[in-house]
Design a protein around this nucleic acid. Structure first.
Length: 801
RNA sequence: GGCCCUGUGGCGGAAUUGGUAGACGCGCUUGACUCAAAAUCAAGUUCUGCAAGGAGUAUCGGUUCAAGUCCGAUCAGGGCCA
């Protein structure tokens, strides 16, 4: 590729000059004096990892930097911060790999990251940086947890957790990929352990309903709604002799078609029935339970696999609606932590139940009209074989059945969610210790606020233990403490918080990063929240974004933050892949480190290349060709500064300038950076071979500034301006000057193009029609014009026969 | 299996509400400059055809005066979920 290496040195020297000046004049520090409206522009902060920053990391930073600079030109007081998500499993793993303590490896990595970021000319506020591993930051993360604990949102419960024997830690469902550990890709086992939860499901309805208050891409909203998985259904109590067996169903209207029930292998009633010898095929049942343990949720609910299960001999349930006795099975396709871990099966109208009934030779009773014999029918139809529901449609039958069940006390209408409470315990060293102590007399008590932050003890060996306990459990001096209430003997909680804890509120610390008395001054929160624009990866839609929305709502209910939503607007960028179309990675050797690209072509060229590659939301491939094309463009812009005229602009030149302002403004606003750049290239091409009027050039430089801030500052200075470009007002266009003097009219016959002609913009329709007939003469001879369609300033179409 | 997205030259990609398909960039071809090359500048570059013309936005069908754009089916690729 033909990069101009001798030019690059010049570019680089200039870039350093301006970066230094921006820093000296605190150009990117918000004024915070109320003289301008605020704009909070946010990127997702990186976690410092060993592979360093490549051009892909720079994509969201650069795009949002263009917007930050654009908003400053528009007169906003802009907060555009960056920090480091330096607490959690990824930082710990990196430290382990290089054999250093995470506190040291994190500090080193942050230095490298800061350098890479600064040479790109990104306009982050250098005075508001935060790192989630800073003791001052941890203090407030822990403080917030304590508020949640006091409000009853944090509780301990025994849940089946995903135990990764390789990473020796428990993972939430969100940290699984295809049922395997997302970090080591190894298999995951189910393991029961007492752990801390945050009661996120309490907010499930609001997390769905409040989406109407925010501007997120439709796709993101849909994904969050599906993830939360709200369903309206009914709890129905089946009796098994004296035991109540409750099932959850969304189709209570099919109750008369129930021919069996299925329990999850972990269901509590099973162990009871095994103990009291109710179940007569004990060994078979126990074997099945054992085999289900090793399967992941993914395997268990895979609809394509054949159903397995065991009948519980000796157990019969009674359908409360008709008194019918039905058999009970256990099967692994029923999950213990959704609903009650128990379902009623209607084989005639559910394919999973159908498969199961066929395999075990069970009755199939159709209760909806419209099906055919010998096949499952999952469509709608009027109810049959259903006593008092006969003849009803779905909605009416559901309402009637719920009413009947409620009147008789064996069913009630309820809502259920797929969303689970947030498993908040981790068994790793490099996480915020959960700030609670357990006293025999007083139970769980929060660490007094004056003792925050509660840091982990220094441990040189912080590898997790083999038995699933946190490494902190080995630090007995630290674990043994006194009860903050009664002063008696107590033990500290040894589990730590997940990676997602710090990132759930970091954006508020940016606003007031050095405050010692509060996580953020309330007046400043009122001023800067909510975030006006938050851009980040699509992969965070159901994790980070949902967690932080929950966190914010919880703080809001406790009166600590204004409003109920943290992010007014959310956008997502695509991935920047390597030139070969694969993900950039060290091991594939296809990585383009940003520092390397800057060294070869300069920061301005690098920034514009990243944004030129394709549309914002789509995945794009890095291209060295684009890099050299952009560098050529920048060189031409610079050379043009020696080729300016002071002539007044022609009418056509004025139109081009106004059109450019209009286009670039609109395209930046809509994050269509690739076409904003190509628009400026077109503009330059329109002046090929000639001179550009001074005024036109000055506007081009202003529009180009957010993309190529260094070169444009240099040219701005060369034009004789003393002030820096950072706060110059954005150019405005005159709509009256956008009108073309002449337009090209396309002539078509029956929709097929047959020529075009140029006409004055003020020509009448009659003149145009006559002219068009001449142009299309060949195709119009010997035919009859039935209809003429005229699209003003664009096209005229003759419909002929 | 469900939900969602994408499919346009040799390549990356442009095309308000349906209204000139291929902007812009890369690459390539030719020319100028040069002993030569690089860089730069100029012209060209969807396919087919000498040309007039014809064909053309994954495939097939539909709606419309007019479809890359809207509708239906199919195929291919990707994402999220189960």
């Amino acid at each position: 590729m033909n990069l101009m290496t001798e030019e690059t040195d010049k570019f680089r020297a200039r870039e350093e000059k301006w970066q230094k000046r921006w820093k000296q004049e605190r150009a990117f520090v918000p004024l915070n004096d109320g003289s301008k409206p605020k704009y909070y522009n946010l990127i997702e902060f990186p976690f410092p990892s060993g592979s360093g920053l490549h051009v892909g990391h720079m994509l969201p930073y650069t795009g949002m930097d263009v917007l930050a600079r654009f908003r400053r030109h528009q007169g906003y007081d802009v907060l555009f911060p960056i920090g480091y998500d330096s607490m959690g499993i990824s930082s710990e793993k990196y430290a382990t790999k290089i054999g250093k303590h995470p506190r040291d490896s994190v500090a080193e990595l942050i230095k490298i990251f800061e350098k890479d970021i600064s040479v790109m000319g990104l306009s982050f506020n250098p005075e508001s940086t935060v790192a989630t591993s800073d003791p001052e930051f941890i203090k407030w993360t822990q403080w917030m947890f304590i508020q949640f604990f006091k409000a009853g949102l944090a509780y301990k419960s025994e849940l089946p957790m995903n135990w990764c024997p390789c990473c020796k830690t428990n993972l939430t469902n969100e940290e699984l990929e295809d049922g395997k550990c997302e970090r080591c890709h190894g298999p995951v086992e189910k393991k029961m352990k007492l752990q801390w939860n945050l009661a996120m499901t309490k907010y499930a309805d609001r997390l769905i309903d409040d989406l109407s208050l925010v501007d997120y891409p439709e796709q993101v909203k849909v994904q969050q709604i599906n993830w939360i998985g709200r369903s309206c259904g009914a709890d129905v109590n089946f009796m098994v002799d004296d035991d109540v067996m409750t099932v959850y169903t969304t189709r209570i209207d099919t109750i008369f078609g129930v021919t069996f029930c299925v329990l999850a292998p972990e269901h509590k009633l099973i162990s009871k029935w095994l103990e009291n010898e109710k179940i007569t095929n004990k060994q078979e049942v126990m074997d099945y339970i054992e085999s289900a343990k090793s399967k992941s949720e993914f395997e268990r609910t895979d609809v394509t696999k054949t159903k397995t299960g065991v009948k519980l001999d000796g157990v019969m349930a009674t359908n409360p609606f008709n008194g019918r006795k039905i058999p009970v099975f256990i099967s692994d396709y029923v999950l213990v932590d959704y609903g009650f871990g128990a379902i009623m099966a209607v084989p005639a109208h559910d394919s999973r139940d159908w498969d199961f009934a066929k395999k075990f030779n069970l009755d199939i009773i159709p209760v909806l009209a419209g099906g055919t014999d010998g096949a499952v029918y999952e469509g709608d139809g009027l109810h049959i074989n259903s006593e008092f529901l006969n003849g009803m449609g779905k909605d009416e039958a559901i309402a009637t059945a719920i009413k009947y069940g409620e009147e008789h006390g064996f069913a009630k209408g309820t809502k259920k969610y797929k969303l689970k409470d947030w498993g908040f315990s981790r068994q790793m060293y490099w996480g915020e210790p959960i700030p609670l102590v357990h006293c025999e007399k007083c139970g769980w008590q929060p660490v007094p606020e004056s003792e925050l932050p509660l840091l982990q003890p220094f441990m040189s060996d912080y590898k997790p233990t083999d038995d699933g306990e946190s490494p902190l459990a080995r630090a007995t001096d630290w674990v043994n403490t006194t009860c903050p209430v009664c002063g008696g003997v107590a033990k500290r909680e040894t589990d730590t918080m997940p990676q997602w804890a710090g990132s759930s509120w970091y954006f508020m610390r940016y606003i007031d990063s050095k405050n010692n008395n509060a996580f953020c001054d309330r007046k400043l929160l009122d001023k800067w929240m909510p975030i006006d624009h938050y851009n980040g990866g699509m992969e965070h839609t159901t994790r980070h974004v949902l967690y932080s929305r929950f966190w914010y709502k919880a703080l809001s209910d406790l009166g600590f933050v204004p409003g109920v939503e943290p992010y007014k607007k959310r956008t997502s960028n695509g991935l920047l892949l390597a030139e070969d179309g694969r993900k950039m990675s060290k091991s594939l050797g296809n990585m383009v480190p940003s520092s390397d690209a800057v060294a070869r072509a300069g920061a301005d060229a690098c920034r514009m290349t990243i944004l030129s590659l394709g549309p914002w939301e789509q995945n794009v491939n890095w291209s060295e060709g684009t890099l050299s094309g952009v560098q050529r463009f920048l060189k031409r812009v610079e050379n043009l500064s020696d080729n300016l005229t002071h002539d007044t602009m022609t009418v056509e030149q004025e139109r081009l300038v106004n059109q450019l302002i209009s286009d670039v403004t609109e395209r930046i606003e809509n994050m269509r950076f690739n076409t904003a750049i190509s628009g400026m290239m077109e503009f330059l091409n329109a002046f090929n071979g000639g001179k550009m009027p001074y005024d036109a050039y000055e506007i081009l430089i202003q529009l180009l500034n957010p993309f190529a801030p260094h070169l444009t500052e240099e040219m701005w200075e060369k034009l004789g301006h003393k002030d820096m470009m950072v706060y110059t007002a954005w150019p405005v266009f005159d709509a009256a000057k956008l009108v073309k003097q002449e337009t090209v009219i396309v002539v078509s016959v029956n929709g097929k193009r047959s020529g075009d002609f140029v006409v004055a913009a003020n020509a009448t329709q009659e003149e145009i029609t006559e002219h068009a007939k001449v142009v299309a003469q060949k195709k119009l001879s010997g035919v009859q014009i039935i209809k003429t369609i005229y699209v003003p300033n664009k096209l005229i179409n003759f419909v002929v026969k």
